[in-house]
Structure formats: C-alpha cells, structure tokens
Design a protein around this nucleic acid. Structure first.
Lengths: 117, 117
DNA sequence: GTAATGCTTAGCCTTATGGCTAAGCATCAG
DNA sequence: CTGATGCTTAGCCATAAGGCTAAGCATTAC
C-alpha cells in the first residue's frame, strides 16, 4: 500500500528499476501489450522466484501494474509513469540550454562591446 | 580505460547512476556549468571520500567528464550522453504507440466489417 | 478427487553499494 | 620550507540486490 512518496524517491526507484536489462526487457515486451508472469519469464533463463523480484520492483515503482485472476497474474505497462522520467531529463536539458544561452548572450555582448570600443 | 561496452551495459550504468539523489543533484548543478569536486560536495553533508565515489560513478558511465589541474579536479556535464537515455525511452514509446495504432486499426476494421455486413 | 499448472513464500548465499575514518600526497600560499 | 588546501587511497561496515532451491497453495484440467 506504500503510496507515492516525494518525487526524488520515486525517481530513485524508477531509475533503479530501469538499471537492469531483465527489467528493461520486460518493459519493452509489455509495450506490445499485457502478458502473464509466465509468458514474461519463459524466454529468460532465470528462476521464477528470481523473476518475481523483478516484477515486484517494476510494480512498486509504478512502471507496471499487475492483477491476478485465477492462478495467472497479468502485467501491463503504465505509460503515464514514464513522464516522471522524461520530465526530469527534459528539466536537465532546460537547465543546460538556459546556461548555454546565457553564455552566448555574454559572448555576443563582449564581442559587441569590443567592436564598439 | 575500460571503453564503452554494449548498449545494454551502458544503459545499466547510466540508469544506476541516476538512481541516487546525490548524483542527480550533481548533474543538475553541472547543467549550469563546470565545478570543482569541492564546490560540488560542499552543500552535501557527506564526507569527501564518499562523495568521490559518486563522482567516479558518474564519470565511469560517461555522464560527466573530469580533469585535474593542479590540486583541483573540475567536473563538466557530458550532454551527449543523455541521448542514450532519451533514445531508449523514445524507443519504448514508439513500441507502445505502434501497438496502440494496431489496436485502433483492428477495432476500426472490425467496426467497418460489421457495418458492411 | 487427483494431478498438473502458475505463481508465491521462505530462506540462504554472494556481490555491490554507499556511508565512514584515518592517513597520504601533491599543490599552492605565505 | 612549512603549513594549509584539495583531493585520494585504503580499508572497514551495514544494508540491499539479485541469484538460487525447496516447499507451499490456489486454480484448473482430467
């Protein structure tokens, strides 16, 4: 039930979740549509208990949602969640582009100043 | 000297590097321009040796570059490196949008078929 | 009702991560 | 040349991550 904490903790969990090729593969597979735990695990030479840890990691950071029906647990991608990631990355780009702009403005002003003198 | 491995390992390292608030703070600060290790560490109640581990983590995954001049090590952001991340994220989006398109096409065709019959 | 299926729980093991202190080493300032 | 500065190295420690096996527990198929 642990609901979303602050943004920083959420980013921690999402970036950590994506820092593993198995979990990125799951994400990529789920992009094509929902799948059961068994379907997701079968192409991955790894035991099911180990695989379940990856599923929990992805679910607890919100990147996927899962639901159990009968004995089958189905996983679906939660696309909205990716906005937090792209949002952070875009923010970084904004910061450095702003700073680049300032530098260019400065250089231009210096240049003009020198030209004028 | 360990040069870049395969894309998957590079993504592992970069996502892992970003899964830590201290390192994200460093990235954000460097967006505004280069800084020395000391400048970066001073606002962060953490020992210098501990902080250096974060610097190394960021450098070894390529997100920053550093250079030592005299006794000062200066760090700069390596913006290009972010393309690998945004590239992967965009690829995921492409996958799921493609699949959504296919679904819409299917639904439309079903609808047309039923209308025609 | 029995057996197979699909996941789950429990618990163990090894390695990686991220913090620390203490001590070292190369510059730079005076 | 001596001391302060700025980073570095070495090494310790606690916790978390990610793998495994063995065993359990509902559901579904026969």
């Amino acid at each position: 039930m642990a609901k979303h904490q602050n943004l920083s903790d959420e980013l921690d969990a999402m970036f950590a979740a994506l820092a593993d090729p198995t979990r990125r593969r799951v994400i990529a597979r789920l992009g094509a549509g929902p799948a059961s735990v068994g379907e997701l695990a079968s192409p991955l030479s790894i035991s099911l208990p180990s695989f379940m840890k990856h599923v929990h990691s992805l679910e607890s950071c919100g990147l996927i949602r899962t639901e159990k029906s009968g004995r089958v647990r189905t996983c679906v991608l939660n696309q909205n969640r990716f906005r937090l990631l792209t949002g952070w990355l875009e923010e970084q780009r904004r910061i450095w582009e702003e700073s680049t702009d300032r530098l260019e403005k400065f250089v231009t002003e210096e240049f003009v100043t020198k030209e004028e003198s």
